[in-house]
Design a protein around this nucleic acid. Structure first.
Lengths: 229, 229
DNA sequence: TCAAAAGTGTTAACCATACACCCATGC
DNA sequence: GCATGGGTGTATGGTTAACACTTTTGA
């Protein structure tokens, strides 16, 4: 079977930078390539877009197929189209970034490519294609966006402590935050629900667990409220 | 001549939302289509990406060909890839937005398509394809970005008055700004050069003309300075 | 009892906002 | 001399930033 066109067409792919947070570092999901080119090298999950398939749907399919991930926060990042970014020929890639709760996605055995693994964002192996550039663009986007939209919660479990939240922001923003000021500010927004539960199995004073109030945020947002850390 | 591939490929286009400012309104550049589909309808400038041609280069080529524009501020906006956005078949479009100084680009006769015209952003005709969506995305991007990056100057002549600048911001942000506070803030940044010239041919007190100090901005930016209105 | 992290208020500096009149120019 | 926009300062309230000790818990 073959497909013929009057003019040449670039190939079209999608790639995803999937971030997670393990209470220490930001992690990025990589797949070890099973095919040439770059056989054996680590690369971002992604692949060719099917005809009749929306771009975001293609990303979700690839994440499911390659890493068993579903239902993740996903946002378009940038489209990379330099003529020589793929040695197989002209290929344009629409890149997305995703945020996942690590606990929900411990890279189960249910994975097609068992060669999927989390790497520390600051400690990535050399990547295939121009994927280092894509990761860097995603890092900058996340850093810029986390301050003005409540997307940080996508990286934490449903119930989290204020220290976890603060540590997440410190990691993403790459600077320390003052504990009292941070708590004052985030609690003043009124977007956290006190679950009345506390941490279990910690060898020190257990912290309260909070949950992000998505509904309240959406209501406030409509009225012109702007989230900001 | 024909081009054959093992798997089907979407067509790849670029489109541009070109903004200009005429001291009254934001304008958008549109091209009247000379071909089916949507023959005779207004559409964004754009077209097919050549093999071996970077995406941004394709946009610049189309702007030159269709409207005689060159050397404009250009930034990637978003990639639109819904399966049915083009009746000719699956077409993915990488959209850009551009900012031009109206005085420099009075749509000269040097234009291939003489069917290019400026329309008020708030008063656009019905557009071909999903171009209304693309314009709306560009409007939101401009509104969000103008406050944190000094891109507004791309829409003004090299020398401008503070009132022109304020009016531009009021138009883009769709809200009034306080004159004294605006001047205080913008002058405090130290990024405007007083050209020591004044307006000519106005029937009231002539205002001073300022110029944006691009070099100083780039130096400050490296040191962590953040532009903000 | 020690180690580890949780939790809690106040002050001073800075920044954003609100606000009204005189000035220069051309007609 | 009048119409038009240019140009200017201050006071107030709110926001941010700096800062250190006590509490709880498990080992």
């Amino acid at each position: 079977m073959a497909f013929t066109y009057e003019y040449p067409r670039p190939a079209l792919t999608v790639d995803a930078v999937v971030f997670a947070f393990d209470d220490q570092d930001l992690k990025v999901l990589l797949i070890q390539r099973a095919l040439a080119p770059f056989l054996g090298k680590w690369a971002l999950p992604g692949g060719f877009v099917h005809m009749e398939e929306a771009l975001e749907k293609a990303v979700r399919r690839e994440l499911q197929e390659e890493a068993g991930l579903s239902n993740v926060f996903l946002e378009q990042l940038y489209t990379f189209g330099e003529p020589n970014r793929d040695p197989r020929g002209r290929t344009v890639s629409v890149a997305y970034y995703a945020l996942v709760k690590l606990a929900d996605h411990r890279l189960a055995a249910a994975t097609d490519a068992r060669d999927a693994a989390w790497f520390g964002l600051t400690d990535l192996p050399p990547l295939a294609f121009d994927h280092e550039r894509i990761v860097e663009a995603a890092r900058r986007r996340l850093q810029g966006k986390v301050r003005y939209q409540p997307i940080g919660f996508e990286l934490l479990p449903k119930k989290f402590t204020l220290s976890q939240l603060q540590h997440l922001y410190e990691t993403v923003l790459e600077r320390p935050l003052d504990k009292r000021n941070f708590r004052k500010k985030i609690l003043a927004m009124g977007l956290l629900i006190d679950t009345r539960e506390i941490q279990q199995d910690v060898s020190h004073r257990a912290a309260r667990l909070f949950a992000f109030d998505q509904k309240k945020y959406q209501a406030l947002e409509k009225k012109g409220f702007n989230f900001e850390i």
